[in-house]
Design a protein around this nucleic acid. Sequence first.
DNA 1: CAGAATCCGGCACGATACTG
DNA 2: CAGTATCGTGCCGGATTCTG
Lengths: 131, 131
Amino acid sequence: MNKFSKSHPVTVDLTKHTCCTSDHNERVLAINDAMDVIRGKWKVQIIGTLLFGGKMRFMDLLRIIDGIAAKMLSKELQDLEAHQLVTRTVKETKPITVEYEITEYGKSLETVIKSVADWGIQHRRKMMQRK
Amino acid sequence: MNKFSKSHPVTVDLTKHTCCTSDHNERVLAINDAMDVIRGKWKVQIIGTLLFGGKMRFMDLLRIIDGIAAKMLSKELQDLEAHQLVTRTVKETKPITVEYEITEYGKSLETVIKSVADWGIQHRRKMMQRK
DNA sequence: CAGAATCCGGCACGATACTG
DNA sequence: CAGTATCGTGCCGGATTCTG
């Protein structure tokens, strides 16, 4: 069930614009795909936490993320796993525990998240002073 | 009506974790604020288009973005203007026209968008081959 | 042309309860 | 502990119509 940019049929009538054509379109699709992965209130935070904290259990995430409900955490983690950004491993301890860890591929998101965070901090400052 | 991370009260009980404290919290807030600006199906695309195409009229955007409805474009542009990422200038031509342009501050988002786009392309390739 | 107004369906997200 | 199941709701985003 891969919904790759289905929302945007690649039809662009160039009735008046002869400039923006070829690879500009690919960028749009890329951005949408990327945003699909990142979208959702918690995705980025989960990845960030895992990126920063290493291997963690469900409960750890539930406690650290602060505000997230179990259902959401569960669902978002499934999404991330489907995208091969995190791994899920079940430990056969007495009360069963599950550990989540970011994949090598998932680490490639660090750049993105970092730039988002950096911009956010800057934005925060700007919005504080002015007004 | 500034809703700065109101969703996440900064209460983190450290019953068991003594590590993640101080500035980690600030990063979370920063990320949320940044995502608030970027969130929405069209925001990034609009900024990207303006970033790439320079000064543009409403109709241009409406045609280029392909798929967006006037209402959405209008609303998103208002949001962006409120965040001081774009400027809106009315030209007193015969049928009135309005031009939108990205601000200097808005250009600071280029880094973010670029990293998102780059990752998206890479992600796209990966998902194509495997599976 | 550049929007505002209105109506509406779906799903993102939340709260709560239950299970192995 | 690590989830599912169920239910409810807001608001996000789309389609359409009207206006200056």
